[in-house]
């Protein structure tokens, strides 16, 4: 194994990076999965709710509007992750690599 890898692995900044990023991506993944599971469950177990009028009297079904919103929500979630990962997480990763090389 590359000796730098050993040092990076032992570097507290690396551990910090991994735990922070995992916590973040895991949380986001669970939220996305929960939203999707909720959507599927309503479609399968409560089709009447899925089909009910949006805002009470619209011709559009609730399920349809919700589906469109979830697609937008997926986009927003990728934006949130990308923003934090490309900033904070990448800086941590660079620090850990620099630390590994300097030590």
């Amino acid at each position: 194994m590359d000796p730098i890898h050993d040092k990076i692995l032992a570097d507290p900044r690396f551990r910090e990076l991994v735990s922070r990023r995992n916590r973040f991506s895991f949380t986001l993944a669970v939220i996305v999965l929960a939203v999707y599971a909720g959507f599927v469950s309503v479609a399968v177990f409560n089709p009447a709710l899925f089909a009910s009028s949006f805002a009470g009297q619209s011709a559009w079904a609730w399920g349809l509007i919700a589906g469109f919103c979830i697609q937008g929500f997926a986009f927003v979630m990728t934006g949130i992750y990308t923003r934090r990962a490309n900033g904070e997480f990448d800086r941590l990763a660079q620090d850990a690599i620099r630390g590994g090389k300097a030590a």
Binding site: S25, A61, G67, Y81
Partner: peptide, 21 residues
């Protein structure tokens, strides 16, 4: 009718998961 949106939602939510993991 709305069956179509059931598929499009599934196709879309796969992407955030690909990104996170």
């Amino acid at each position: 009718g709305v069956d179509g949106v059931f598929y499009t939602v599934g196709w879309t939510v796969g992407w955030p998961l690909i990104l996170f993991l």
